[in-house]
């Protein structure tokens, strides 16, 4: 689709500030439409509160410290789960990508598990691991594992023959070849997988918190739903959205710093 901001557009690209203006402007417009619709009274305000009421709830929760403690509880589980799931996913992807026996043995099982909706595994997790922190961290790790595994495996598959040849004529073989070529060459793919996992691990964690938890931001949102506190529930959603957005930006910036050799996409 031709767009004014497409990379191949010959017109001069808009400045940083005017781009930010467009993004902020569209967000502000959406909020205004929401506010007007909520105030028009077409729907009961306790079910469809205006953004101003949501903001008020957000400020109240922030002042009371409840928001911070819920976000901290979720953030701990999320970061632990993301780290665990990403590490396992990257290792599994390198193995199944580079070593055919591992692929033949593990890939069918992993693909089978991948397509099972993780919500359905929640009861089993509760049975096996109880409702302690472990089950929630494991669930977040579960959500992180699959995108990292798949994108790493794909990256290993697509390592160019030329790099392998060059490295072998320069004296690399066996594990050395693996470490010097397959690992660095597949890092950008792994990074893409981790970036997806930043959100998928949040999805899984939210599912875990809504079913078996007494704190955490998704637990809070579900609790508010049961009490008909719509604006507080929406405040939780907004807080998660903002945190997720910030986490994604930070991760993207970190990847640019850590893999400086990548061609600009």
């Amino acid at each position: 689709m031709p767009s004014r901001f497409a990379a191949n557009d010959p017109s001069p690209s808009p400045s940083e500030s005017s781009r930010a203006l467009v993004s902020l402007g569209s967000a502000a417009a959406a909020l205004l439409v929401w506010e007007a619709a909520a105030r028009s009274g077409v729907y009961p305000p306790h079910l469809f509160p205006p953004p101003s009421a949501v903001l008020r709830a957000l400020v109240l929760d922030a002042r009371s410290g409840e928001l911070a403690s819920d976000l901290a509880a979720s953030g701990r589980r999320w970061s632990a789960g993301l780290a665990l799931g990403s590490l396992c996913g990257a290792a599994a992807g390198l193995l199944t990508g580079a070593w055919r026996p591992a692929r033949l043995a593990a890939s069918p099982l992993l693909h089978f598990l991948r397509v099972v909706p993780f919500m359905m595994l929640m009861p089993l997790t509760l049975l096996w691991f109880g409702i302690g922190e472990e089950s929630k961290i494991l669930f977040a790790a579960w959500g992180a594992f699959f995108p990292v595994w798949l994108s790493t495996e794909t990256a290993v598959f697509s390592v160019e023959r030329e790099y392998v040849w060059a490295a072998r004529t320069l004296g690399a073989d066996g594990l050395r070849l693996w470490w010097e070529v397959y690992v660095p060459r597949s890092l950008p793919g792994t990074a893409t997988g981790v970036r997806l996992a930043v959100s998928t691990s949040m999805f899984a964690l939210a599912a875990a918190e809504m079913v078996g938890s007494f704190d955490g931001i998704a637990y809070r949102a579900f609790y508010c739903y049961q009490l008909f506190q719509s604006e507080k529930m929406m405040a939780c959603i907004a807080a998660v959205g903002v945190c997720g957005y910030v986490a994604d930006r930070i991760f993207a910036a970190a990847v640019r710093r850590l893999l400086p050799w990548q061609e600009p996409a």
Binding site: A166, L170, W261, Q262
Partner: peptide, 29 residues
């Protein structure tokens, strides 16, 4: 018996490891 540094290779496509600097590429062997 197999590849070795005594037979150096220069290819047309993907000639260098993109994850290493020019120096890093030369120092690889």
């Amino acid at each position: 018996p197999g590849p070795g540094v005594e037979r150096g290779l220069v290819l047309q496509k993907h000639a260098l490891f993109p994850w290493r600097t020019a120096r890093g590429n030369v120092e690889f062997g």
